[in-house]
């Protein structure tokens, strides 16, 4: 849990408030400094400092050999990363947005995660694919994809979705060190959001597959991730005024999925609402819901509700886009429904 500015970290250093963008930048810099096999490649990552300025200053510090601009060829450079990983490098491939990763879908889904099985365990692929993911603001249908359920569907991939600067830094560093392909799906709308993070001289690694209770509560579990975490936190405050105590479980990783934290929370509150930033059909919430009912059915006092996007391509019009996205009203209504309030 993040608390007041300036509190001491567990190792005695002083935590600072930094942005999500800075946190990612620190993670990249630290991993590049730690391991000469790590390099960052993508569109505009070097001389432009990243389309979202995540790689600010890295070219100056690490040079053009390790911070590499590419042409607009997502399939090409994603595949280049996979090939480099086959022979022992540890590439970090930036997609300007994961909406563009769809152009490289074959490399991300067919090459990276299949190599280990197909080669009988001879070739694991230590690669990180990262970049902004999820609907931002009025970008229209092609630029608004939330890709987590697409990628979590592919065995061999790991998928994480940090919602805070601390999680962004800790998960990205862990991803780079993982010996499998990992997707770090950054929240496009949260790059400028701030949060408390341990000082740079303290190693911050957050394991993949570990959810975090962002707020404790007793009446209902709101299970969320990425852009829906701040939404859930805001709604929880509103619910408090109506005497409903909501516990917020931030999944942080979609795959592996931390069932224990989910089950513990739902076993305590007996009610669950899943609020996700992606589409409803075959979405992350469907899997979470399946596992809850299968494993702790008797703990439930109400059917599980899901709040997600509407099942339509994203409209440009602001009012329509808001309607399509999960929002506070929808989440409030779902919580009240499971609480019979």
């Amino acid at each position: 849990m993040e608390t007041a500015r300036g509190r001491a970290s567990s190792k005695g250093g002083v935590v600072r408030e930094i942005t999500y963008r800075q946190a990612l930048n620190e993670a990249l810099a630290e991993e590049l400094a730690r391991d000469p096999n790590v390099f960052l490649m993508g569109e505009e990552v070097a001389e432009y400092h990243g389309a979202y300025k995540v790689s600010q200053g890295l070219l100056e510090r690490f040079g053009p050999k390790r911070i590499i601009d590419t042409p607009i060829s997502e399939n090409g450079f994603a595949g280049l990363g996979v090939g480099a990983a086959m022979v022992g490098l540890r590439p970090i491939i930036e997609f300007m947005t994961f909406s563009f990763s769809l152009v490289a879908f074959d490399q991300v889904v067919n090459n990276a995660p299949n190599m280990f099985m197909m080669s009988g365990g001879q070739f694991n692929i230590p690669i990180t694919f990262r970049g902004p993911n999820g609907p931002a603001h009025q970008l229209g249908a092609t630029h608004s994809h939330a890709t987590e359920s697409l990628y979590a569907n592919a065995p061999g991939l790991k998928v994480c979705t940090p919602a805070t600067p601390r999680d962004a830094k800790g998960l990205l560093k862990t991803a780079v060190r993982d010996d499998n392909p990992v997707l770090v799906l950054e929240a496009e709308l949260l790059y400028s959001s701030k949060g408390m993070v341990e000082p740079p001289d303290e190693e911050l690694l957050i394991p993949l597959g570990q959810a975090e209770v962002k707020r404790e509560g007793s009446d209902v579990s709101i299970i969320c991730y990425a852009q829906t975490v701040p939404l859930a936190i805001a709604v929880a405050a509103q619910l408090e005024e109506e005497d409903i105590s909501a516990e917020i479980v931030d999944l942080r990783s979609i795959k592996p999925l931390d069932e224990v934290t989910i089950f513990n929370s739902v076993s305590k509150t007996h009610r669950a609402v899943i609020v996700e930033q992606d589409r409803p059909f075959c979405g992350v919430g469907a899997e979470v819901c399946y596992r809850i009912q299968k494993n702790i059915f008797d703990e439930l006092d109400a059917p599980i509700m899901r709040v997600s996007q509407e099942d339509v391509p994203m409209p440009y019009n602001e009012r329509l886009e808001k309607f399509v996205l999960p929002n506070a009203d929808k989440l409030m209504a779902a919580v009240k429904k499971v609480c019979y309030a």
């Binding site: 090939g83 022979v87 090459n111």
Partner: peptide, 24 residues
């Protein structure tokens, strides 16, 4: 011998990556 790749053309970027690593 780095495969054996069955999606037509999809291994040419991999070759680029392997050669990139040699140069790196």
């Amino acid at each position: 011998m780095y495969g054996g790749h069955a999606i037509v053309g999809a291994h040419v970027p991999l070759a680029a990556g392997m050669a990139f690593a040699s140069k790196y």
